[in-house]
């Protein structure tokens, strides 16, 4: 299988990995880099479980060619918070009951983060639009939206400091 080196800034750190030309970014993250937090729900860009942030934008990593991430800044769920200091979205997803089975959660949080990184005062409609490509079959989305609203408020007050 023909392979080449993919270089990118992954969760703030430069990485290099040998990938196949036809690997998706999701393959590279899960199989080559062992970052299994990003999930595969359909492999066709139809459910958002594989959502990561590439150069500031939420994308479905299952349909992005790995090599399209060359020199890109890629953020995954593993890179946005630590146990000691969860990202505000991780904090509120936990506290607002936005997590049930947890399989959509990483993608959902990354979609929400891409939104809040640009806009910490989103309307409910903007939140819905940001996560409309993330299927959740457990929660009915309500607590997810509440968690994102709450995280936005946390981020506003953090930025205000």
């Amino acid at each position: 299988m023909a392979k080449t080196v993919l270089k990118m800034i992954l969760n703030g750190k430069p990485v290099e990995r040998l990938v196949s030309f036809d690997d998706t970014l999701l393959d590279a993250l899960r199989e080559d880099l062992g970052l299994t937090g990003t999930k595969k729900g359909c492999g066709k860009g139809e459910c958002g479980a594989c959502t990561i942030i590439m150069n500031g934008k939420a994308v479905n990593s299952c349909i992005v060619p790995a090599l399209q991430a060359m020199d890109a800044a890629v953020e995954t769920i593993e890179g946005i918070g630590t146990v000691e200091k969860l990202h505000p979205l991780q904090e509120t997803f936990v506290d607002y009951g936005a997590i049930q089975c947890g399989f959509c959660t990483p993608g959902m949080i990354m979609s929400a983060k891409a939104l809040l990184d640009k806009n910490v005062v989103p309307s409910r409609e903007e939140i819905k639009e940001a996560i409309a490509g993330n299927v959740c079959r457990c929660t009915g989305y309500l607590k997810i939206e509440e968690a994102i609203m709450a995280a936005a408020e946390m981020m506003q007050s953090q930025q205000g400091k």
Binding site: L35, T36, G37, T38, K39, T76, I77, E78, G81, V83, L86, L89, Q90, E91, F93, V94, D95, G97, I99, G102, F103, T105, P106, I109
Partner: peptide
């Protein structure tokens, strides 16, 4: 706080 939720929020939960 739900016992499984922090792991799941961090992408550390194993499926």
């Amino acid at each position: 706080r739900k016992l499984d939720s922090v792991e799941k929020a961090m992408g550390a939960a194993t499926f």
